[in-house]
Simulated scan of single mutants.
Amino acid sequence: MEILAYGVQADERPLLEQAFTGRHELRCLSVFLNRDTAPLAAGYPGVSSSVNDVLDAGTLTLLAAGGTKLIAQRSTGFNNIDLEAAAELGLTVARVSYYSPYAVAEHAWALALAVNRRLTRAALRCREFDFRLDGLLGRDVHGMTVGVIGTGKIGECFARIAHGFSTELLGWDIAENPACRELGMTYTELPDLLARADLISLHVPLLPATHHLIDAAALARMKDDAILVNSSRGGLVDTAALVETLRAGRLSGVGLDVYEEETGVFFYDRSVEGISDDTLARLVTFPHVLVTSHQAYFTRTAVGQIIDATARNIEDFSAGRTNENTLVPRT
């Protein structure tokens, strides 16, 4: 089956090509899928999309008109795809329902530790041979109260690492995870978790019910010296409210791997022309804020699993089968 893959990163491309050799004909593009680039897929029965592609009704209409039958997304999240429009157009949609949760949990902890110990500021100073310790005072993670919002596979991995630091664990989710209970986690209501936790990490999907879960009211409940980490979905945090909270001198550290308006910014080089997003521009100026460009999943292990699952999704579609990754079945 001929597949056109959009939004392929340089480090991802050889892994994709190796996995697809002898299985499917593959063409990789670094450009992202949207209404402007959808016509490139004309004649390709299958398209593989990335998490920051824009698969709205307009894009999907163009793909269907060009003969595309399958959208194989290389991510767990699929909020960028209009599933209702896909179904109406007769497009099959599949995602990757599982890949290494350790990749994301470990990156979340990397963010937490970096902002807590002011590693970005320290590294920049040392490059200029400034070895002062002014402004670099951190805290022991040992003994902290850590709040885990969302205790699925990734949240559980994050909690296991927290347990290794000998922290007090608080959890919030619609369903309790027995494995987290065994770690000593106490499940509580969200307002209580926000008020008690020294470190809060987000691991819930982006749904209408979780959009801006961390809004101005939630931020106001947090301790003045709390640390907030988001490696899940940008829309969980009201970024404008977060900026105002930081401007008020609250929160001792923020680590973000995602941003609610990241499409068209993350995965691009904007170092020459800059960005027009005033909120993001303001956010990155705070010395105790660390932003990375949606790379928590980006390990060799996780990317390999994503690619293998994508190839299997394509093979199952070709054989007329559905699997646990199918979002919109073949009609």
Rank of each mutant, 00 (worst) to 15 (best):
A85W: 04
A57W: 00
V47I: 15
L91T: 12
L133V: 05
G43C: 09
L133M: 06
E88K: 15
A86P: 09
D53H: 09
E84C: 05
A110K: 03
S75C: 14
R118V: 03
S49F: 06
A110M: 12
L62Y: 01
P45Q: 10
T76E: 08
S97M: 04
E84S: 13
A108H: 01
F129D: 11
A94N: 14
A42Y: 04
R74V: 09
A57C: 06
S97T: 09
V47F: 01
G90L: 07
T59C: 15
A110L: 11
S75Q: 09
S50M: 15
Y44S: 06
S75P: 12
R118H: 14
V115G: 06
A85E: 08
L40D: 12
A108S: 14
L63T: 12
G46K: 00
Y44W: 15
V93H: 08
T120H: 02
K69V: 02
V96G: 10
L83S: 10
A72H: 04
I81Y: 01
A64G: 07
L113F: 06
L91V: 06
R118W: 03
A86K: 04
W109P: 13
I81W: 00
E88D: 14
Y98S: 14
S97N: 12
L136C: 09
E106A: 13
A114L: 08
R121Q: 15
D53M: 05
D130G: 00
L136Q: 12
T76W: 02
D130Q: 14
C126P: 00
R132I: 00
D56G: 14
V47K: 02
L136K: 08
A114E: 05
Y98N: 13
F131H: 01
L113Q: 07
N52V: 11
S75F: 05
D82P: 09
Y99P: 12
T61I: 00
P45I: 07
R95Q: 13
A42R: 14
L40K: 04
R74H: 14
D56N: 15
E84L: 04
A123E: 06
I81Q: 07
T59Q: 07
T37N: 13
F131N: 03
A114S: 15
S75A: 15
V115A: 08
V115I: 10
S49I: 08
V93T: 07
S49K: 04
Y102D: 14
G135P: 12
A112I: 11
R117G: 05
G58T: 10
N79R: 01
L83I: 09
L70T: 00
R95S: 06
S100Q: 06
A122N: 07
R125K: 15
C126G: 10
F78L: 06
A108G: 15
L89T: 11
L89W: 07
